[in-house]
């Protein structure tokens, strides 16, 4: 896999710490997110990788007592995503998220995808139709649902629901997609389809993915970060991390050893 040496950055965490009340979950994370690349976050449960991921679209703002330190710079405009002046709703327009368990709205397939567009004020039926189709095609599910757009989304299979959720995230044309263990509830075929999709999607969008499946991180990502106890232990090109990590803690984790 060829990766250009100094690819442009889509985002960058700078000395990012995060506190759930008095508990510090992230400890001074510095990490680049390369533009139109897939970056995987790996590490044992409780290492802070999901906390880190969720900081990007300000999900922690939903609960009182949570506190950020440091910043996440978002490019090209160099916005600090964590700045109190930045509206979380605006952030979420530019940064989509896909969760571990598919969570379609209890609406039709069409409405699931059109939802974000309607929230943005899109009313034109023709535009909505076009954008829904474009997003469904982008999520590689169009052929399976084009004749049943008015069916209820929860009636789809798990793998289809997850791809629908990806289409929903794509509909608003986000610049960054966050995936939080997107395939842990799916069978190997559906997992393969999502991984294939991630590979396609990175042509147009930057992706940050949390996964417990090490082989998945190795397969889909260009860069990998290993996190442990709220710290980022090692960040590097995926090819190097999985063949010759520099830190013994990374080595122990990816080889399945007890530290």
């Amino acid at each position: 896999m060829q990766i250009q040496e100094n690819p442009a950055l889509k985002a960058e965490a700078r000395n990012l710490s995060f506190f759930y009340g008095n508990t510090q979950a992230l400890k001074g994370i510095n990490m680049p997110i390369h533009d139109k690349k897939v970056t995987a976050l790996i590490g044992p449960s409780g290492c802070g990788k999901s906390t880190y991921l969720r900081s990007f679209n300000r999900m922690h703002d939903l609960y009182p007592g949570n506190r950020y330190e440091g910043e996440i710079r978002f490019f090209p405009d160099n916005t600090n995503l964590l700045s109190p002046e930045v509206d979380p709703i605006e952030v979420r327009m530019r940064i989509g998220m896909v969760f571990q368990k598919p969570n379609p709205f209890p609406k039709t397939i069409y409405e699931n995808v059109a939802y974000g567009l309607r929230v943005r004020g899109e009313r034109n039926k023709r535009t909505l139709d076009d954008k829904v189709e474009h997003a469904l095609r982008g999520a590689a599910i169009w052929d399976e649902v084009k004749d049943r757009l008015q069916d209820l989304a929860p009636n789809l299979s798990g793998g289809q629901q997850q791809r629908l959720c990806i289409a929903r995230a794509l509909a608003t044309d986000p610049e960054l997609l966050l995936f939080d263990e997107p395939t842990s509830a799916l069978d190997p075929i559906a997992t393969g389809a999502i991984e294939e999709l991630v590979h396609e999607l990175k042509k147009r969008v930057t992706i940050l993915i949390v996964t417990h499946n090490m082989q998945q991180a190795a397969r889909v990502s260009d860069y990998t970060a290993y996190m442990y106890l709220g710290e980022m232990i090692e960040f590097g090109k995926t090819d190097e991390i999985f063949l010759k990590p520099n830190d013994k803690r990374t080595e122990d984790y990816i080889t399945g050893r007890m530290g």
Partner: peptide, 10 residues
């Protein structure tokens, strides 16, 4: 069976 990585793979 094991999908070895890093030093195990080497």
């Amino acid at each position: 069976k094991r999908q070895p990585t890093a030093s195990d793979l080497r």
